[in-house]
């Protein structure tokens, strides 16, 4: 009987010890980071990135060590990157941004989440905080400027990148850059489109949309023709309300749509150029 009691108590102590280890795995202020991140790292290894991100946040929440907090949020950002949630990754990194690498990652994450404005702002901030931008950040700046159609500044930055690479790796990419930027997309002017749109359909044709242009012209001509015909037919109310009334809807609509088509054309051309830039230039760069 006595032996039974002893075994029972021994088991109780063992269970409580095990629980204690599970609940408080280690001292969060300790320098043993492998121990602190155990649960989160295990989840990360199991590719359960959503839950791993929460556990890394817990490490940040519980830790009073700056080092551990920094590592926890960096790992959390990696989890978000793995799930493709780049805007959350950027927001997480912004909470701890310290060095150049962090800012690069923030700018990159914003770029990947199509938030080009934020990406540009981060690069500009980086220019202020650090004396010179490294090659990877220069490339990101070129890509961001391309997205804003700011090709003049993008080319300047690309030339700076080419010079840097030539001196550091002896690789000359200047001819490629000159070639790419000599073949810039010919964008249509929205101002011209607005003027042309006074003739219904002309702005559409300017945007290479012949079918839509001719249709817009035909509809407006039909409305105007109907009005004129009714005047000649002495049906003045019908002419005014049927012809002019119809025209008052179709004419401004065609004007607006013409400018929209030019905007769409420019977007397509920019996208094509930026894709070509990425496909042709990035593989040539000896970047990490």
């Amino acid at each position: 009987m006595f032996r039974f009691y002893i075994i029972f108590i021994f088991l109780c102590v063992v269970v409580s010890g095990v629980r204690s280890e599970n609940l408080q795995p280690c001292n969060l202020n300790s320098s043993d980071s492998a121990c602190i991140f155990k649960k989160a790292d295990d989840l990360f290894m199991q590719q359960n990135y959503e839950l791993a991100a929460v556990e890394y946040e817990r490490c940040f929440y519980l830790s009073s060590s700056k080092e551990i907090s920094y590592k926890a949020l960096q790992q959390k950002a990696i989890c978000f990157k793995q799930t493709g949630d780049y805007s959350k990754a950027a927001a997480t990194l912004e909470r701890i941004a310290e060095d150049y690498g962090d800012y690069y990652q923030i700018a990159l994450c914003y770029y990947l989440s199509d938030n080009f404005q934020k990406s540009k702002e981060t690069i500009e901030k980086c220019r202020l905080y650090f004396d010179t931008l490294q090659e990877d950040m220069l490339l990101l700046e070129i890509l961001t400027l391309n997205e804003f159609n700011d090709y003049a500044n993008a080319e300047k930055t690309a030339q700076e990148l080419a010079l840097r690479l030539k001196s550091s790796t002896n690789k000359d990419i200047m001819p490629y850059i000159d070639k790419l930027y000599s073949d810039l997309p010919k964008l249509k002017s929205e101002k011209t489109a607005r003027i042309l749109s006074f003739v219904p359909g002309l702005a559409h044709i300017y945007a290479n949309e012949w079918g839509k242009g001719l249709t817009a012209f035909a509809i407006n001509a039909a409305a105007l023709g109907f009005g004129v015909w009714q005047v000649l037919d002495k049906c003045y109310i019908t002419a005014y309300l049927g012809g002019a009334g119809l025209l008052s809807i179709t004419y401004p609509g065609a004007m607006k749509n013409g400018v929209y088509e030019v905007r769409k054309y420019n977007y397509r051309k920019t996208l094509q150029f930026n894709q070509k830039f990425k496909q042709e230039l990035i593989p040539l760069l000896p970047l990490r």
């Binding site: 006595f2 009691y5 002893i6 029972f8 108590i9 109780c12 102590v13 269970v15 409580s16 629980r19 204690s20 609940l23």
Partner: peptide, 23 residues
Amino acid sequence: MKRLLLFIFLFSSFIVFSQQDNS
């Protein structure tokens, strides 16, 4: 002896439940 064993048992149980509460 029995009292001592009972004390140890209760003490262990207390530790387990207080850790659950803390968690």
